[in-house]
């Protein structure tokens, strides 16, 4: 990756360097999309599947004084959302450095 990054600046022979860089950027974008899809799936499961679709079934399970479905709907889903954004920040921070596109 580091060599690719240098080629971008040095640009030895115009066309190959550009093609390399384009391929690199495509890989960067694919990885970004993959992270997004995974995190948004978790978002959907926490916010919709557990908190809405199956809330009454999950309410049969209790932990402490909480019926589980209700807990997800009014507490758990929000904790999950916060963690998802943090995870995306950390993953992208690493990815930006790996592909040398950070600031």
């Amino acid at each position: 990756m580091a060599t690719n990054g240098h080629m971008q600046h040095a640009a030895p022979s115009g066309d190959t360097a550009k093609a390399d860089n384009d391929a690199k950027m495509r890989r960067y974008w694919q990885r970004n999309l993959r992270y997004m899809v995974v995190l948004l799936s978790i978002w959907f499961v926490a916010g919709y599947v557990l908190s809405i679709f199956f809330v009454n079934q999950l309410n049969a399970i209790h932990f402490g004084g909480f019926p589980l479905g209700f807990w997800f709907a009014q507490q758990g889903s929000m904790y999950v959302f916060v963690v998802l954004i943090l995870a995306y920040f950390l993953l992208m921070d690493r990815l930006d450095k790996e592909f040398d596109v950070h600031e």
């Binding site: 995190l39 908190s51 709907a73 009014q74 998802l84 954004i85």
Partner: peptide
């Protein structure tokens, strides 16, 4: 229970905002 639509609606949007 249905109060969750405000709670999740007004927080879950930040996931979309942050990722998209």
């Amino acid at each position: 229970y249905a109060g969750c639509m405000y709670l999740m609606g007004w927080t879950g949007g930040y996931v979309l905002l942050a990722l998209l």
